[in-house]
Nucleic acid binder design. Structure first.
Lengths: 248, 248
DNA sequence: GGTGGGGATTTCATATTATGAAAATTCAGA
DNA sequence: TCTGAATTTTCATAATATGAAATCCCCACC
């Protein structure tokens, strides 16, 4: 592993919505590195356009990030092809919809759309949650044994009252998901939400991602839940058709 | 400048819409570096989530890029605040609208929206054009002498029949733009388009960016051009109010 | 207008670390 | 199973990132 590159990535990741503008000193303190080292790295990143200098001696993320983002294939495809279907789902049932992928034992949200009039949920594109404690994560685990293996190795820990922390219990649940083609998360996460997820599959039936619809427990418990489940499943299938050529 | 970081940035930039999936060999060839070096860098970037491994031995851009992009303050603000106003402009006049910023002698497009039924234009978020040959670029030059200085140092070169290649002529044009508060580009670029641009200013009247409306020459030449100019100017002013706290 | 202080830069010797040739491995296709 | 073309790993060496300290720069305060 090339240290300088790793550090550069860490520096870029320091710039968040909470701290979009940072000075050299702040960066160095955050990452516990020498100000000189930080300065060298930041200067290089500025030269490349990844960071840019504020009018003061502060820095912020630069244009290069926008450019790179435009080239993320998923972003392109997910936006162009999946978005209309996701919007339709939101339109019908309110709540929030995510598309999530598996990475290093967690689910990463690669798309998020929320209805305007729904309980806010603390997720954003790029954020992560434990796979075993989310509806989309459980779908991903159910459809790919390698994901499960990786998750087990990292261990299961308590997240909320209903989190599955027993490996055997998790395996049972995954079998159920395989049989039924969808998963449910009822307050297993820290957000007090009810989620329904279904798999997005490639042409060769490998799992690419999962789509989920999330809403307050009260809302989802009501009579039209089975209709929601059907809709999430069919949306997942439609998106699978659109994105199915992708193999991760 | 830290070489490893610079090279890592170059590697990331290799992944484009044309070549979204690359092998080590291809990357090494593109950048004329040793395959081993490329491999070390790519491995590190994979570890950081900036790149990800395809199912084959190929690589593509990873989730980290999505995450970083979400934190680009401009992106956030531009989308949330400027987008409705931009959409309104498109709705009224068709064509394409860009928001552009100045960087290293060129304009960088940080937002692009096109009407569905208009002549396509070869720009995208993150792409660049010479400042002196675009309507938005000329606005940026007119409102910031430092930008002009930088542009002159890099020299003016022929881009299309109407490109301004004489420095004195350019300065005259910029004075006109200052007086009138907008700029026009009539086939000065390589795209055969007619553009109208106006400045987006901060509260302290420094130029942040420029907004332009672009369309086929034939369309823009007609009688309601003065109305278009007024609309572009007033949209720019509204966006200035929304984004005015930003100081670059 | 001068002064002090808290940054950001720059410098430079040193130790760390990236480099690249070559060997080992993997994988797909014959 | 074999072959060839890729990737991945290894490792000695050269290159370069590192960080303490010195300098510079810009504000805020006198």
């Amino acid at each position: 592993m090339i240290g300088a590159v790793k550090k550069a990535c860490q520096i870029i990741s320091c710039f968040t919505n909470e701290t979009p503008i940072l000075g050299i000193g702040e960066i160095a303190a955050k990452l516990d590195m020498n100000v000189s080292t930080a300065h060298h790295l930041v200067s290089t990143l500025c030269n490349e356009g990844v960071l840019m200098k504020d009018n003061q001696k502060k820095y912020r993320l630069g244009w290069k990030v926008l450019e790179w983002n435009n080239h993320v294939m998923f972003q392109q495809d997910v936006y162009d092809k999946a978005m209309p279907l996701v919007k339709e789902l939101i339109h019908r049932f309110k709540g929030s919809v995510h598309i999530a992928m598996f990475d290093k034992g967690t689910v990463v949200f690669v798309l998020k759309v929320s209805s305007k009039d729904t309980t806010p949920i603390h997720t954003y594109v790029g954020s992560r949650k434990p796979a075993y404690a989310t509806s989309s994560g459980k779908v991903l685990l159910a459809y790919n044994p390698a994901y499960l293996q990786e998750t087990i190795e990292r261990g299961l820990s308590y997240q909320a009252p209903n989190t599955i922390t027993d490996i055997e219990q998790l395996k049972e649940e995954l079998k159920w998901i395989q049989r039924n083609g969808y998963s449910i998360s009822n307050n297993e996460n820290s957000d007090g939400m009810y989620g329904i997820a279904a798999p997005i599959l490639s042409y060769s039936k490998k799992i690419i991602a999962a789509i989920n619809l999330v809403g307050p427990v009260s809302y989802m418990q009501d009579s039209h839940r089975s209709m929601i489940i059907q809709s999430v499943k069919s949306t997942a299938q439609l998106i699978s058709k659109e994105l199915g050529y992708i193999e991760v």
